[in-house]
């Protein structure tokens, strides 16, 4: 008998004569305390994310590339990793063509194996989109895919993320439903709620443990 068969046998034997407990999931518990009027959703998200040292800027669909350029300049970041085949990647590339002072854009357009060294050692910042956010916990939702790979939001020390204000959900329960994850999960889905951090030494909070040291969220007001 295989290990699997033996384990399952033991478990089934232990449950003999017993019944599965009923599913009494009470969704009000994970929704009602975590609902916000539309005008407060963004404020809540902002408050929670700023509390864990996230930088947040309000902008809009047309002005964000210019704001991003300013922020990069202010932070003296000379290179930015982008996903060239996303809408925001294209929009940024176009905007950049009109600016001579803008830092270099670098496209994540190859398998990581082909440029891993550069990604780890010479990529100070990145820009990604998000598929939404969660007001209750102050979290961005990212679903990396073949256009916008997973490591973009992890390896570069500064991560810029674009968030459409209209995609902020009240809570994780409602976000899961809206994104219909039950019917099929993305390959990788992430909730990101600030820059990487640790309190493993003496419980002193330190940012920039293994992931980004800085998380900058540009909220596009579109509602």
């Amino acid at each position: 008998m295989s290990a699997k068969a033996r384990i399952l046998d033991k478990l089934r034997h232990s449950l003999a004569g017993t019944e599965a407990l009923p599913d009494d999931f009470d969704e009000t518990l994970v929704t009602e305390p975590w609902r916000y009027p539309p005008e407060q959703r963004m404020a809540r998200l902002r408050e929670l994310m700023e509390a864990v040292r996230t930088e947040i800027h309000l902008t809009d669909q047309t002005r964000w590339p210019a704001l991003l350029a300013d922020l990069l300049a202010k932070k003296q970041l000379t290179r930015l990793l982008i996903a060239p085949r996303t809408d925001h990647g294209r929009q940024l590339s176009e905007h950049w063509q009109h600016r001579s002072d803008a830092p270099a854009l670098h496209a994540y357009d190859r398998p990581v194996e082909e440029w891993k060294h550069e990604l780890f050692h010479d990529t100070p910042a990145s820009l990604t989109g998000t598929v939404g956010a969660i007001a209750a916990t102050g979290s961005l939702i990212l679903c990396p895919d073949r256009h916008e790979p997973r490591l973009m939001s992890l390896v570069p020390p500064v991560h810029f993320a674009l968030l459409r204000a209209s995609t902020i959900h009240d809570n994780l329960y409602e976000a899961q439903r809206a994104l219909n994850w039950r019917a099929g999960m993305p390959t990788n889905a992430l909730l990101i709620s600030g820059p990487s951090k640790t309190a493993d030494i003496e419980q002193v909070l330190a940012y920039g443990a293994h992931g980004p040291k800085d998380l900058v969220v540009l909220i596009l007001e579109d509602a």
């Binding site: 916990t137 102050g138 979290s139 390959t187 990788n188 889905a189 909730l191």
Partner: peptide
């Protein structure tokens, strides 16, 4: 830890798919 959520919730459902560039 008394946190409303941790920095990362990582939900993994598949290995690297065709055309994906990392993972």
């Amino acid at each position: 830890l008394g946190q409303p959520i941790t920095t990362y919730i990582n939900m993994i459902s598949r290995p690297r798919q065709a055309g994906e560039r990392d993972g």
